[in-house]
Each structure stands twice: as C-alpha cells, then as structure tokens.
C-alpha cells in the first residue's frame, strides 16, 4: 500500500511537471505580447522593451521556464502582470468559494443523478426509463448559461426564494449548485444506470431475489454497492474539474471562483495568473483521482493495491 502510494505521488509530480510545461508553452504561443498589453497604447518602443526585460520575457523560453520552475518549487507563483499582486494571494482568495461550489455541485449531481439512474435501470425499457434518459440528455446538453439565467429568473426573481447571484450565505450556493447538478447529474444517471444493469444481470442478484429478499434491500445492499465504483471514479474526476472552476456557472451567478479568475487572466494575457490557476487546477485533478482510487478498496474488498 505504501509503495503504491509513493508510486502514485511520483506519477502526480510527473503529471504536474508536464502540465506546467504545456501551459507555459501555450501561454507564450498566444498571439499577443504581454509587455505590450501592460505598456498600453501610449507607450514608446523603449517602454515596451524595458517592461519586457524586467519581466524576463526577452530571455530564451527554456531559461524563462527554468526560472519559473525554480520559484515555483519555493512556493512563489510570481506577481500578476495586470494586478501586480502576488498570484498566491489571488488564488487563495478564490479557493474557499471554489471548494464550496465544487462540493455542493457534486452533492446535487449525486442527488439528481443517482436516483434517476437507479430508477431508469430498474424500469429498463419502459417509458420511465426513456423519460429519465431524455431528461439526462437535456441536462447534459442544455447550455449552462441559459439554465443558470432561467434558474435565477424563476427562483430568485419571480419567486424570491434565493438571492440574485453572489456569494456568502448557504442560500447563495443552492442555485449555482443546482445548475451544476442538472448538467453533471445527467452523466451520473447514465453511468449509474449502465452499471446497475450490469449488476442486475448477475447470478447473485437472481439468487437474492429468488430467496425472497426484500426488493429494496436487493437494490441497495447487493446491486448498488457493486455498481457504485464507476460513480466514485466520476466523483474523483469532478473534484478536479470543479476545482478548476466552472467558468460559465461562476460567471452567471457572480461566483468568485477560480474559473472566472483564469478566464479574465486569459483576456489580459496575464501569464503568471494563467499559469498559477492552471497548476492549482491540475493539482486538484490529480488529488481527486488519487482519492477515488484510494476509496475503491474500501468499497470493494476484492480490490487490493500492492
């Protein structure tokens, strides 16, 4: 187990290194010059050059990368080009809201997706199944921008049950989490349904039923327990994806998450913020997957890591 963990952590470090290289290259492939964006339109050529030198942008790309990596290892993500503040400070201010929405979003995905998937699997081939799967399809494909605005208009404006966007109280998180849940819940419903159907075909399920075990007990004790692994994998992925921010939902609901920060940094060619934001996101993807893998043996004793 310890050996497995060490191996995975090593892999994680490799992944992060790879992400940092790719992001660094992509940021500098953007057809825009950060020095010129900082200098503004009234700048002389000399000003632009001076800014380029101060930021080290005049050096060869590998040198710039090694410098960045050196600072990164000391926990220094640099300073924002546009805001001049330290990137770590900017990211820190976004972490709590991002985490809150990620957790609430996953909760709603499960609340919507699990029951839907279970019902659809049990009623496979019926109108109920088709209705649930149609709903899942719409949820997955509906533009989040429209869903978000609609939720706000109906449940915050027409029926003033929730605040009109923003961040703060537990009430604030409900509508954005529902918007996330409606989209992601569709995936969960599909995954749950197909995993359930696989398990429902197993002999031990038939045996349990034949023994006259109470139907609900069959579903929850025998079927669901064995069908839950792919759902856990999905949660692991979602932790990473959501911690990277859900740009559209964040922007409709005015949620101060990390996604909005990265999005605005891209507009301004603010490379240190883009780099820092993407690296933190990648870190959470890696951690999310690792957590999911570690939960497997707890849920299914047949899985052993060595």
């Amino acid at each position: 187990m310890i050996g497995y963990l060490a191996q995975r952590l090593l892999q994680a470090a490799g992944v992060l290194l790879g992400v940092s290289i790719v992001t660094f290259l992509l940021a500098f492939l953007l057809p825009a010059d950060p020095a010129r964006m900082i200098a503004g339109r009234s700048a002389t050529v000399q000003t632009v050059e001076s800014i380029r030198q101060q930021l080290g942008l005049d050096r060869p790309l590998p040198v710039q990368y090694v410098n960045y990596l050196g600072k990164l290892l000391r926990g220094d993500l640099g300073r924002s080009y546009a805001q001049k503040a330290e990137v770590t400070k900017l990211i820190r201010s976004r972490l709590a809201p991002t985490l809150q929405l990620a957790l609430a979003g996953i909760l709603f995905e499960l609340l919507i997706g699990l029951p839907a998937g279970i019902v659809a699997a049990l009623r496979r081939g019926t109108a109920v199944d088709q209705a649930v799967m149609a709903f899942a399809f719409v949820g997955v494909s509906a533009p989040q921008f429209v869903v978000g605005l609609l939720l706000i208009y109906v449940f915050a404006y027409l029926l003033p049950l929730f605040p009109l966007g923003g961040y703060g109280t537990p009430l604030h998180v409900v509508l954005p989490a529902v918007a996330v849940g409606l989209a992601g819940g569709g995936w969960y419903a599909r995954v749950t349904r197909s995993a359930m159907i696989d398990v429902l075909r197993q002999d031990y399920v038939r045996t349990a039923r034949a023994k006259g075990v109470f139907p609900a007990k069959v579903v929850f004790k025998h079927v669901l327990k064995n069908a839950v692994l792919p759902v856990v994998a999905l949660v692991g992925l979602d932790i990473g994806v959501f911690m990277g921010g859900i740009v559209i939902v964040e922007s409709v609901f005015g949620w101060p998450g990390i996604g909005q920060m990265i999005w605005q940094a891209i507009q301004l060619v603010d490379i240190p913020v883009i780099m820092g934001g993407v690296l933190v996101t990648a870190l959470f993807v890696v951690v999310g997957n690792l957590l999911a893998d570690l939960v497997y043996p707890v849920l299914d004793p047949r899985i052993r890591y060595s």
Binding site: L149, I152, Y153, A156, Y157, L164, G165, G166, E250, S251, V252, F253, G254, W255, P256, Q260
Partner: peptide, 12 residues
C-alpha cells in the same frame, strides 16, 4: 460588486 452578469445586474 464585481462578477455580476449584466443580465442578473439588470434584475437586481
């Protein structure tokens, strides 16, 4: 207040 979508701002 920042991060407010213009459509939501109009409702607010």
């Amino acid at each position: 207040q920042v991060g407010v979508d213009p459509n939501v701002a109009f409702l607010r």
